[in-house]
Design a protein around this nucleic acid. Structure first.
Lengths: 222, 222
DNA sequence: CTTTTATATTAAAAGTTTATTACAATACCG
DNA sequence: CGGTATTGTAATAAACTTTTAATATAAAAG
């Protein structure tokens, strides 16, 4: 199977197991990196990995703690995590999974099993991956959608930039007109709707993040 | 152990197992009720139970499907669910747990084990219950229920926000109409009741904190 | 305990608000 | 000046919110 360019981080303090895993994963075409404890894992550029194999029981920060940290950080929240756990802590995995992990594997495990689980998890996570981002840069007056630059006309840019700068806040049409339009111009507030529609189309597939609250106005919801 | 008043619903299509469980649970002091499939379980007053033991594999609606339904409904979302699963579907439990279940037990199981799991789950869920809250934020015009954002339509939001800002105070329907409705509109004061009902449903399980005082009106009681 | 009054719930109707489209008007650029 | 891109308007469709009214349930009064 082609695991081209799939990067996996193995975090485990047991050297034999860790390096054994690395070797087999690399044989299988993955790019594997290792860390011997949670603290050192955090020093890695974690958002570069496609998946993390994470031992639960480690000295210092536990695998659960590390996972919690990663899931709390939007940068790393959607990197799949598979826990490696000893047979006798299998019960605790319920909390592990509830905390956002994607799977767990009990030691001792067969390498075939590990690879099967990894593939299954990656397959699932690909589906989810659609939740990326939209950014506006007032310097260059451009908008990045999934890393791609798109050009928005002035009004559309101003609206989107404003909303993005205040995520969660709902702006009434009146507010938007006051902030973005010059003092003396008068436009019907339905114009805002039209701009919103245009923005939504251009930032697809994130149009749905530009929410409307009936009776209130518009806002950006992450 | 004192399981006074703890109500458990057992959903399983295998009669022997179902009734056996019921018998043992009742011997142990629980109040146990049963349903022989998911459809019939839905006919029960589900939010009255403290915990649900749910078979995964059933004819008709599966245990997963039922759990999804329950977790989607705010009324029942935080009733703990323990899945009962055959050994050979144990792998699937990862998705089951990700979907919000609190634990699972593989068949065949010992009654002692079952009771231990139930107690563990109830202990955990009690902890969660203490950090309960309903908060309205006029910035984002959203309402947090147990940390979850819910969006209320305008009138509902305005009412709830007002009541929350004056905990303990009872507002007559007339007051509410004066404060929240525009000057010139006239609506029958029974409309308020309908909004209250809707709010209660949406902020479940805290609906009961939005109290009504017969003859006076409504208020928020912490 | 019965009657009366008030509240809860539901479903459907009425009313608003928003989305989308096409086109007209305006500004912008070479 | 002509052509293109942007912005605004209006009309209609779609989605959502609010109200009403009918019925069921619960609370207060007698």
């Amino acid at each position: 199977m082609d695991h081209n360019n799939i990067k996996i981080l193995i975090v485990d303090d047991e050297e034999t197991l860790r390096e054994g895993l690395r070797e087999y994963l690399e044989l299988d075409g993955f790019i594997a990196d290792t860390a011997d404890n949670a603290e050192n894992a955090l020093k890695k550029p974690i958002d570069n990995y496609d998946l993390i194999l994470l031992d639960v029981m480690m000295d210092g920060m536990s695998g659960f703690e590390l996972a919690t940290k990663l899931k709390d950080n939007p940068e790393t929240a959607n990197i799949p995590i598979i826990f490696l756990t000893a047979k006798d802590t299998e019960e605790d995995m319920v909390s592990g999974l509830n905390l956002g992990a994607d799977d767990y594997i009990s030691k001792p495990f067969s390498i075939k099993n590990v690879i099967a689980r990894i593939e299954a998890v990656l397959r699932r996570s690909k589906k989810k991956e659609k939740s990326a981002d939209v950014v506006c840069d007032r310097q260059t007056l451009t908008c990045m959608v999934d890393g791609k630059n798109i050009k928005l006309p002035r009004k559309e840019f101003e609206i989107l930039a404003l909303l993005l700068e205040h995520p969660g806040k709902i702006f009434s049409r009146e507010e938007l007109l006051n902030i973005i339009w010059p003092e003396n111009v008068v436009v019907v507030d339905r114009s805002v709707d039209v701009h919103i529609t245009r923005i939504r189309n251009k930032i697809a597939p994130y149009g749905k993040k530009l929410i409307s609250r009936s009776g209130y106005g518009y806002g950006w919801q992450d």
